[in-house]
Design a protein around this nucleic acid. Sequence first.
DNA 1: ATCCTATCCTGGCTGC
DNA 2: TGCAGCCAGGATAGGA
Length: 292
Amino acid sequence: VPELPEVETVARMIRPRLVGRTITGGRVLWERTVGDSRAFLRALRGATVRDVGRRGKYVVARLEPEGWLVGHLRMTGRMHVERAGWDPGAFAKVRLDLDDGTAFHFLDVRKFGRLWYVRDLAELLDELGPEPLGPEFTAERLLDDLRARKRLLKPLLLDQTFVAGIGNIYADESLFRARLHPLLRSDRVTREQAVRLHREIRATLTEAIEREGSSFDAFYRTPEGNPGSYQDQFLVYGRAGEPCPACGTRIRRLVVAQRGTHLCPTCQRPPRRARSLGGSSAKRPSSRRGRA
DNA sequence: ATCCTATCCTGGCTGC
DNA sequence: TGCAGCCAGGATAGGA
């Protein structure tokens, strides 16, 4: 699943291939990817890309004379910039032809991904929370923001208006590294816990960017076609049943806010009087239990 | 204010 | 071996 580190990798890789290029035309193969293909292509034809960056999980390209090309990969979107004639395969959704004979391609197996043309970025990104790797995201601000809400930590971290760019993988990894239970209520977090969470969110995302994101299934690939390698560093995500790397306790998987959630019930103490989820009591051992 | 469910999709996995 | 059915998961809308 493309989250901040994957989207950052995509933006960094397509940036040198797009900056300075003028869009000469294109083709939309799946209308819903762009909303209205005629309006989309009309707005883009003749525009020149001046910069490519990232905001949350959005790729943003600044255009001249005006406006922005914005993309969201959702679950399975991919971006490539390749020479003319490159075959994007069965999942091609949008192609934008460029003035040097290359073309920008948007591919998407599950069709949830989107591209937009907007005059003003705020039309799309107005509600996004702070960038977790930006200067405005301080431990102090995180503490204040956590205490201003009464929500469970896991769904709050997934809320893009709270902090932008964190998804299911990096939420679980950050909470484990900060030794915080996903069901802990945000208004009960101590200053020390907020400092830890802030530090581990930033460290996790930074390390994942260095490894060009995580590829554990057939979907996420960089614009150069390679998988990321941060999946090799996962401590809890996707590792239910395996021993905790810190203490050896069997890693558990729960469902929180409709999302698979991975944790160590020993390192991440369940909140007092929370349901037995993640505690030591619930659930009979399954037949698979007992390695570790 | 917060939570819950359904929706959009389809490759890949499970179970028979 | 084949096939039906279920699941994951980001974002959002609507209802509780």
